[in-house]
Nucleic acid binder design. Structure first.
Length: 411
RNA sequence: CGGAGCGUGGUGUAACGGCUAACAUCCCUGUUUUGGGAACAGGUGACUCCGGGUUCGAAUCCCGGCGCUCCGACCA
């Protein structure tokens, strides 16, 4: 993409009411735009990055047998009354509204209920199980307080996977494969090294759930990290029993702040019992389906990556999530030789399938470098009169700062 | 939801209760420049968040809204 065609512009300063690092950088670089507290639009660069994250998650969900679908955002009150989750006393984050005829509706904040209802049409036999169904969808949560930029919004993208199994043993297999898939996702997204599988409250059907917590000062969770075992315990559940279960000593734990980037949860038969989701086993006996839910917020992950991979100059995207692979910067000369050579290189790389953002704007070198640092594309290629005199370009790695000269024809 | 702070051109800031609301940046014109946000000249752009009030006079003081941020509470 030619940068002269990119409608977003960079800013020297973020709006004064943005304090969080992720929102500051993402707004200044033109990735996102705030409409209200906790409500952000994704601009072309931001959507590209968000979609990269979505793509990685989708691949890993498919790899464990996930089938993608898309449920509705508008929610039927009756379905939620069945489990008691329509009641404000149980769930206080609903956005509720109504039809012209006064029928009450909600905007979905999660989807266990409607998907369980849906599955009654499709799951009949043990032969049908297990089923893993997932979606990417905008969730709506009326948080008492939105905060930390894109880390905690009232409207945000969520990947939610739900599993349906015959029994606990089958469920635990699915659960374990989902856990491994989550590990791979965070590794691929460049935050695996700082992300810990964290033991957290399990609810009524399992002793623990597992959170994926990425260490960050911007986080709102407090976890206790066991570096030797690469696990952590959420402060909410830290007690002697948990320590004994995990075989760890309090003295080996370090208190850290972290961002919850993912959560996996065993649901048992809570929802299948509520809605009568059953299957026939090999003996023809009717049994309740055992469920699990597995969430990752791609937009929150994007904010987490921005928090982690950035410096005072701007963003430093890992390769897998960068909006473009290469930022081609042409420093024009009077005769137009650099422009001609850069145009040609841009066409050549693009034809080869390389995702290139080409700064073909008629602006000064300093501005182009500053914008490039801010936008944070991993690989920078600079072409100028100087480099062309050696039939070369200069490449610079955004993350390491390493600079090399390369022959133009080698690219 | 409790507490605190803040709302002034697109953005960031300034302005004692008193001239035509100032400066920087951005943007537009022109000239010049071209390896780290260049220089010069000219120009556009603001019902000072909204509604009341006090005052001869309000961006400034008071009251009420609304919005934003932060702290806390909350958080499948």
């Amino acid at each position: 993409m030619k940068q002269s065609h990119l409608f977003t512009r960079t800013r020297r300063e973020a709006p004064k009411d943005e304090v969080s690092k992720n929102a500051d950088l993402l707004i200044r670089a033109g990735y996102i735009s705030k409409d209200m507290a906790g409500v952000y639009s994704f601009l072309p660069l931001g959507l590209r990055t968000l979609n990269k994250i979505v793509g990685v998650i989708r691949e890993e969900m498919n790899s464990i047998g996930g089938q993608e679908l898309q449920l509705t955002a508008l929610q039927d009150k009756k379905v939620w009354e069945t489990t008691g989750r329509w009641d404000d006393r149980n769930v206080d984050i609903w956005f509720k509204t109504h039809l012209k005829n006064d029928t009450e509706l909600g905007l979905g904040f999660t989807h266990e209920e409607p998907l369980t209802v849906l599955m009654r049409e499709h799951i009949r036999s043990f032969r049908d199980l297990p089923v893993l169904a997932y979606q990417f969808q905008t969730k709506f949560r009326n948080e008492a307080r939105a905060k930390s930029g894109i880390l905690r919004g009232r409207e945000f993208l969520m990947k939610d996977l739900y599993s349906f199994s015959t029994d606990d043993a089958e469920h635990m297999n699915v659960y374990e494969s989902a856990k491994q898939a989550y590990r791979r996702i965070f590794d691929r997204l460049g935050i695996g090294g700082e992300t810990y599988v964290t033991f957290a409250s399990g609810g009524s059907f399992a002793k623990y759930s597992h959170e994926f917590q990425t260490l960050s000062e911007a986080g709102e969770d407090v976890i206790y990290v066991h570096e030797g075992k690469r696990i952590a315990v959420n402060k909410e559940v830290l007690n002697d029993e948990v320590l004994a279960d995990l075989g760890i000593a309090r003295a080996d734990l370090q208190e850290k702040k972290a961002i919850e980037v993912g959560n996996i949860f065993s649901l048992g038969t809570r929802f299948s019992d509520a809605f009568g989701l059953t299957y026939k086993d090999a003996e023809g006996t009717s049994k309740s389906v055992v469920m699990g839910s597995y969430g990752i917020g791609p937009s929150r992950v994007m904010g987490t990556i921005a928090e982690m991979w950035s410096d005072e100059k701007g963003l430093k995207w890992p390769d897998a999530v960068a909006p473009f692979a290469v930022h081609l910067i042409a420093l024009f000369d009077k005769e137009g030789k650099v422009k001609a050579a850069a145009d040609e290189l841009y066409e050549r790389l693009t034809t080869k399938g390389v995702e290139v953002l080409y700064d073909d704007r008629d602006s000064g070198a300093g501005e182009k470098f500053s914008d490039s640092d801010l936008i944070g594309i991993p690989q920078r290629i600079v072409m100028s009169e100087k480099t062309l005199a050696q039939d070369s370009v200069e490449t610079k790695d955004r993350a390491t700062g390493k600079v090399e000269m390369m022959k133009v024809e080698s690219l």
